[in-house]
């Protein structure tokens, strides 16, 4: 049994909006063990990013974590004070964002930005910090790091910016890396190169990683396990092989049914018929997929829906699983 690194239990996040309370994330649970890459997959707006930001305490002021526990390294991150949490961020758990260039300070040399993070968590003489910064770049297979370190973000390609972002996230050897759509906007070849690098580093260092994507093919290629989210709920959580061999949730099945064959280009999800409910509704059903679901029964409207184990390590939140 491998060691649990992160355990999220019953996490719910709501936003105060003009149109009322928006329940963006509802009762989300999942875990990551050491050396594992967990994929979180779902349509746009399914709450993937909000979940990730909630873990790190990075939600904006309009957001409220209404329930849940996020246990990391024996502590509940949601109860941790700002200062303690800030000390963990970038050191013990890191996040890489989509749109790599926008995530970098546009008027500061990229090397200096990485050095800022190292100096924050492991202060030391400038020469030592610089050496570590160059090493972080080298580990991301960035050629000619001395030269690259002096560049500004707009002088680098998108792929290079993302490698810089990953180098920054990994510079202080965190135990967990969250990557929120790290390859959107990159061309397919660069995408594969960045993902290979990410996977190899996670394996080599024995870290854990969460890969957030709406690209099911990408998730299947790089993840050990996949959590499928729909409208803020986790609908299925299973090892990749088991999920692809036999999806148990109608939503997952629809996603897989619409997936382009492996041989074709890796691309975004083909939409599932219907659309997710408006999350500001006060009368959201217990299963937020039920209104799009062809298998809906009166049973689906009864409260108390939770993830149940259907096969070893394969859990699904459905009254009438496939």
């Amino acid at each position: 049994m491998s060691e649990a690194l992160l355990s999220v239990r019953d996490l719910s996040v709501a936003f105060r909006t003009r149109g009322g309370t928006l329940r963006a994330v509802e009762g989300v649970s999942f875990g990551v063990v050491k050396g594992e890459i967990l994929g979180i997959v779902g349509e746009s707006g399914s709450g993937k990013s909000v979940t990730a930001l909630a873990l790190l305490g990075l939600l904006d002021a309009a957001a409220h974590v209404t329930s849940g526990r996020v246990v990391f390294g024996g502590q509940d991150l949601l109860l941790l004070g700002q200062a303690a949490l800030n000390g963990l961020r970038g050191a013990e758990l890191s996040i890489v964002f989509q749109n790599p260039r926008a995530a970098l300070n546009p008027i500061r040399a990229v090397g200096a930005q990485i050095a800022d993070v190292i100096a924050r968590h492991d202060p030391g003489p400038a020469a030592a910090i610089r050496a570590r910064m160059l090493d972080a770049l080298r580990q991301m297979r960035i050629a000619d790091p001395e030269h690259r370190a002096a560049a500004l973000p707009h002088e680098l390609s998108g792929g290079l910016c993302q490698r810089i972002g990953i180098a920054m996230a990994l510079a202080c050897s965190p135990r967990l890396l969250i990557a929120d759509e790290p390859t959107t906007g990159l061309d397919v070849t660069t995408q594969a190169a960045v993902m290979d690098l990410l996977r190899d580093t996670v394996r080599r260092r024995g870290m854990g990683a969460v890969l957030i994507t709406h690209d099911l093919a990408l998730a299947s290629a790089y993840c050990d396990r996949i959590v499928v989210m729909h409208a803020g709920q986790v609908v299925e959580d299973a090892p990749v092989a088991s999920l692809f061999a036999r999806p148990r949730h109608p939503y997952t099945a629809a996603l897989l049914g619409g997936m382009p064959s492996r041989a074709e280009s890796i691309d975004a999800l083909v939409p599932v018929p219907g659309s997710p409910p408006d999350l500001r509704r006060a009368d959201l059903p217990p299963c937020r997929f039920s209104e799009r679901c062809g298998r809906r029964q009166p049973l689906c409207a009864t409260p108390g829906l939770r993830l149940g184990e259907q096969a070893p390590g394969h859990r699904v939140a459905c009254r009438l699983p496939l």
Partner: peptide, 26 residues
């Protein structure tokens, strides 16, 4: 409100540094 400030926070940089060096300069 821009992405790189959120990224700086995600990397644990101190508030002082984020406000004075990252945000104000931009």
């Amino acid at each position: 409100g821009s992405d790189f400030i959120r990224a700086a926070r995600a990397n644990g940089l101190r508030r002082r540094k984020i406000v004075l060096s990252y945000a104000l300069r931009n």
